[in-house]
Design a protein around this nucleic acid. Sequence first.
DNA 1: GGCTGCCTTATAACATTGTTATGAGAAGGT
DNA 2: ACCTTCTCATAACAATGTTATAAGGCAGCC
Lengths: 238, 238
Amino acid sequence: MAGRPGEDARRRLVDAGIRLLERDGPEALNARRLAAEIGASTMAVYTHFGGMAGLHEAIMKEEFVRFGRHLHAVPRTDDPVADLLALGLAYRDFVLANPQRYRFMIGLTGPGAHPPIGHDLIGEGTPTTLPEVNAVFEQNVETVRRVMAAGRIRRDDPVPVAAQIWSMLHGYVLLETIGVFGRDGVPTVLAPAAVNLLVGLGDRPEAAEGSLRSLASAAEAPAPAPRPKVRPGRRPRA
Amino acid sequence: MAGRPGEDARRRLVDAGIRLLERDGPEALNARRLAAEIGASTMAVYTHFGGMAGLHEAIMKEEFVRFGRHLHAVPRTDDPVADLLALGLAYRDFVLANPQRYRFMIGLTGPGAHPPIGHDLIGEGTPTTLPEVNAVFEQNVETVRRVMAAGRIRRDDPVPVAAQIWSMLHGYVLLETIGVFGRDGVPTVLAPAAVNLLVGLGDRPEAAEGSLRSLASAAEAPAPAPRPKVRPGRRPRA
DNA sequence: GGCTGCCTTATAACATTGTTATGAGAAGGT
DNA sequence: ACCTTCTCATAACAATGTTATAAGGCAGCC
């Protein structure tokens, strides 16, 4: 259909895959449907990706790239804790906007789970085997680093700390998408959990609550009113 | 094969499903394989469950029942925080023992995700639409209640607090099963996260660490040596 | 006993989907 | 011009969920 005939069938297959995944869900990602979408036969899937698993993996990687861009669009302010919370909300927004897409990305739902996302993210150094996934996680780590630099939480290896936050977020969004938390999950579960985790990491309760409030008020007034800066106070406890 | 012919094909199908799921993974849960396992034709699936989706749901419920029993086997002591941590470790053990089974249970991996687990767990009252799932969550809530009664964390509605802990656990185990945390996930991520969350909920850091240590020493010395009781100290902060 | 009605089940077929074999065509280099 | 390599369309095969159909079996009742 679109695009020159002899051209990148690869890219067009992945593009079509993204489009179908986001519109019709993971079940739409079958060989015949995708091939028809780019006006080719199913063989294209095999010459370029070796099979549906390879194409699924390519689609997953591209989704992670877009996920990373979505998170990157969150503005960074001079309150890194508020930024961390904003990042978490953006993460949640992306997942809630299309839960099936997220489940597909992490290798679960849909036609046959694709291979695991990565290995030893924490073990040796930082990176995972999939740079696309790592780029998403890195934004979390970088923000944690800034929170530590600002003296809001105890100085420590930021990677495991980011992993704690990631675990919480990941679990929360997966449970929320299956309806476990009803309609008020963010105020009743996610927000308190985030504050509690921050306090446990060393932030003062009033400071953490303040960053949360500043975020909430910024969400109500989208563009104007520069966020009231929360002064870090003093060193984290212990 | 086994069992009287005219008898509960229902139960035998579910039993075979559990067996195959735990031995060969979710891909083994197909109509022909299951029917052959009980010496019947695939029609049995349709007369008793309306289709594979119904059988999958029945298998999921039974797995949750067993999951609940597994958690129930964790001994309760007079340190409810240590019990909560032990419950978390047992949760993690069950998942790590067979990650594919857990993913199947929560409606993700395998041949076509089955319907969502439940709705409005937090919204109205406590229960979800699936009592089997709720029974698992309830153990968490009950332990949180005991932690509050012992004065270790702030008194509050225990359900959202348990939901925070559940989110963390759920996210952690799913990330660990795909290899993100390498080999030391528990000491570097899960244990610190649990302590941090507890501290944020009001426990004193030394008390939380103490409960964690008592648990670790109990794990090394399986049967003997009654766990050194951690005195609750005084009221939680604020 | 024999009849009726409902539930269960075996057989067989169909639709969908992943996959592979095969051969044709295009592109590029020598 | 010829060869090699890559790409791709056609067609077929295997696995799986599902359904139609008809037979078997069992309970209840006359």
